[in-house]
Amino acid sequence: MNSLLSIEDLRVSIRGLFPGTDRIYPVDGVSLTVASGETLGLVGESGCGKSMTSMAIMGLLPRPGGRVERGRIVFRGQDLAGEDMLKIRGRDISMIFQDPMTSLNPVYTVGEQIVEAIRAHEPGASRGETRARVVSMLGKVGIPSPEKRFDAYPHLLSGGMRQRVMIAMALILHPGLLIADEPTTALDVTIQAQILYLMADLRREMGMSVLLITHNMGLVAENADRVAVMYAGRIVEQAPTSELFRAPSHPYTRGLLDSIPRMTDQGALDPDGRLNAIPGMVPPLYALPGGCKFAPRCQSRTERCDSEEPKLFGLANGHSVRCWLFADGGDRRV
C-alpha cells in the first residue's frame, strides 16, 4: 500500500498535572497508516488519546511537559522527528479544529489569517497575487461574495462560515494530509452535513488524505475508508469501514455501536434494537489497569485479561483486534 503517513509504535508522555504524579501516557504503542487519497477515521471517547496523536503528528505536543517517548512518525517516507516542523505544518499537513468560534483570532480579518499561512511558507509571495489566491479559495469552500468576506472579522460570520474559513486556511497550500479534529461537533446538524460534503468534494478534487478524528461512529460510517478505534491510548480495533460495521469485534467497538439508536429499513426507530450504554467509566490515565485496559468494563473478560495485555491480532479482510478473544485469529465470542 502506498502510505502517505505511517505511525509506528508511537508512545507520547505528558507531565502529570499535579506535583508528585508521574508522567502519564495518553498515547501508548499506536501504529497506523494513512494511504494517499484515503480517509482514516480515528474514533474514541474524549481522553482516549486521539487528539494527542494528532498533536504528535503536528509536533504540537503541550510544552513544556509533552514529548514523544518512543516510535516514529513517517510522512512521505521521511521521519518527522528529523524535519523542520515549521515548514511541514500548514503546507504538507494541515489541521482543522472542533470549535470554529474560537479557532479564529478575533482581531484579524479572515483574509489576513489565511494570508498568514501563505506568508509563513512563501515569504516572497506578492500581495495582490496572495489576495487573489485567498479569495478564490474562499469561493471554493462555498463562501458567498468571497471578495467582500476577505475583509470580514470572524465574529461577523456564522459558525458554518467560520468552519469553511478554517478549511480554506488549511487547504490554501494544498497539503497532502488534512487532520480534521471533530470538525463538525460544534456545528448545527444541518450545517454538519454541508461541511462534510464540502470536505469530501475537496478531498477528491485535491487528492489529499484525511485523518478524521471523531467520537461519532455515524460520521465515520459515511466518511471514512478505514476506521481505527482508540481506547485509553491504544488502538483496539482497525478495519476497513464496511468490514468494521459488518463485523465489529472488540467488545468496546461493539459497545460503542450498541449505544447508537438504530433505524429499521422503513426509517423508524428499531423497536427491538437495544440501546446499551457501556457499563463503568473510562479509567483515568494515571490509574490504568495492568492487563487489558478495557477489562474492568468488559462483559467477556477472562482472568487472562486482568493479567496480560493483548496484542493486536490480525483477522481476515484487513481487520485487526486487540482482544484475547481473537488470540489465534479466530472468533471465540460467546
Partner: peptide, 26 residues
C-alpha cells in the same frame, strides 16, 4: 491557551510570530 493560538501554530508560524502577532496582540 486560546484555540486560535493553536490554529496559528498549526499554520506553521514561528514561535516569535505566534507570540507577537497572536498572543501579545490579543
Amino acid at each position: 491557551n486560546a484555540d486560535y493560538v493553536r490554529t496559528a501554530r498549526a499554520k506553521g508560524l514561528s514561535d516569535f510570530t505566534v507570540n507577537v502577532r497572536h498572543v501579545f496582540r490579543n
